[in-house]
């Protein structure tokens, strides 16, 4: 596997960049995502209009993997419909669970594919999926909360 790949440039770049880490104007949804066992804590802000995620950003603290995963996700979902965002999250969970490995199928995940090898690091899976779970809950409403992947 190689930890090198996981902590590749993309990750450290994202971790260092504050590009997506801020508040947005007039968010329509603000939702907190927490991994209590490790203390990762993010707050995702979305602004939707006519079913489209017009803007997104996050605040919070966490490890490089959770922060990078969140930031990459935000790049991906901006301008997408809610349905498209949910599709992406399903694809991401499939990749992290090592259920979807086909490169073509994963293509829509773009930069998030850099996190593929986390599927071999069970201890870190929850860091990678935190943002995506939070997104799912934000879009589908609280009833979808707390299901484990």
């Amino acid at each position: 596997m190689g930890l090198e790949q996981i902590y590749s440039e993309i990750l450290s770049e994202h971790n260092n960049s504050k590009r997506n880490k801020h508040h947005i104007d007039n968010p329509t949804t603000v939702l907190k995502g927490v991994n209590p066992s490790c203390g990762d804590e993010i707050e995702l802000e979305l602004r939707e209009r006519d079913g489209v995620i017009e803007d997104a950003a996050f605040t919070g603290i966490g490890c490089a993997i959770s922060q990078a995963s969140t930031s990459i996700m935000i790049d991906l979902i901006k301008g997408k419909t809610k349905e498209e965002a949910i599709e992406l999250s399903k694809l991401f969970f499939g990749m992290i669970k090592n259920e979807i490995t086909d490169e073509d199928q994963l293509e829509p995940l773009d930069e998030a594919i850099a996190l593929k090898d986390i599927s071999h690091m069970p201890a870190r899976v929850k860091c990678a999926v935190l943002a995506w779970h939070t997104l799912e809950n934000a879009v589908e409403g609280e009833h979808a909360a707390n299901h484990e992947h």
Binding site: L3, Y7, C38, D40, I61, G62, C63, A64, I65, S66, M121, A123, R124, C127
Partner: peptide
């Protein structure tokens, strides 16, 4: 983050 330290 401590998790990254631990993984490394």
């Amino acid at each position: 983050h401590p998790h990254d330290v631990s993984s490394i």
